[in-house]
């Protein structure tokens, strides 16, 4: 029961969803549409489950004064305050002057954007330390990268005599070798995803059930 029922559900739902692509029948689509709705709700419920889990993991760390307990406290406090103002604001949480909107634009936005912007500095450091033309392959990679970097910005486009040619060459790299390389990765990835999908549906892959 503990194993068989989830496996039967996996097989049934998986097969039905595969059929969605091939069977445009109205009745069948009603079933798949309903399944999709349940999927949406379950995906949203996963967020709520995650939050409970987060609290369960962090509360003991705070009460037992484990390393970084103060930061965990800040995290849970900011979580609680944002949740509170979000739910108090309700459907109007995003109107001008609402506390939730203020937290989003004055706290969440700069923190999120700056976290990602740090990567600009680290990629500069990586370019200096790790990007070496040690052999032909690395040289080609480096050459393509330099060409794209130069041709993709106005200074490269406006170089006298070679600017236009650089643009054409970059577009050729994007359209031909890049497309060939990407397509091979897409095709390989698709074959992998199909195989994994079939394994899940047929019950050969059971890691999601905790096996």
């Amino acid at each position: 029961m503990k194993r068989t029922l989830p496996l039967i559900i996996t097989f049934f739902v998986g097969i039905v969803m595969v059929g969605e692509f091939f069977i445009p029948h109205y009745g069948y689509r009603m079933l798949t549409d309903e399944f999709l709705q349940w999927g949406l709700v379950l995906a949203a419920a996963a967020y709520l489950l995650g939050i409970v889990n987060l609290i369960q993991v962090n509360i003991p760390k705070i009460t037992q004064r484990k390393p970084d307990w103060f930061y965990k406290l800040i995290m849970l406090l900011s979580l609680a305050i944002t949740l509170a103002i979000g739910f108090i604001g309700g459907q109007d949480r995003q109107v001008e002057g609402a506390a939730y909107r203020w937290v989003y634009s004055s706290v969440f936005t700069p923190l999120s954007a700056t976290m990602f912007s740090l990567l600009a500095f680290y990629i500069a450091s990586a370019a200096f330390r790790a990007f070496r033309a040690r052999n032909l392959d690395a040289g080609l990679l480096l050459g393509a990268a330099m060409l794209v970097m130069l041709a993709r910005v106005p200074i490269g486009e406006n170089l006298p005599y070679i600017g236009e040619g650089l643009g054409h060459l970059m577009n050729w790299i994007m359209d031909v070798p890049n497309t060939a390389a990407r397509r091979s990765i897409f095709i390989g990835g698709a074959l992998g995803a199909i195989a994994t999908g079939l394994r899940v549906i047929l019950g050969l892959e059971r890691s999601h059930l905790g096996d």
Partner: peptide, 15 residues
Amino acid sequence: NLGHLYIMALILFGN
């Protein structure tokens, strides 16, 4: 423009 030139210079000098 300048950002790309800077990274290119880093790669060149690093190499």
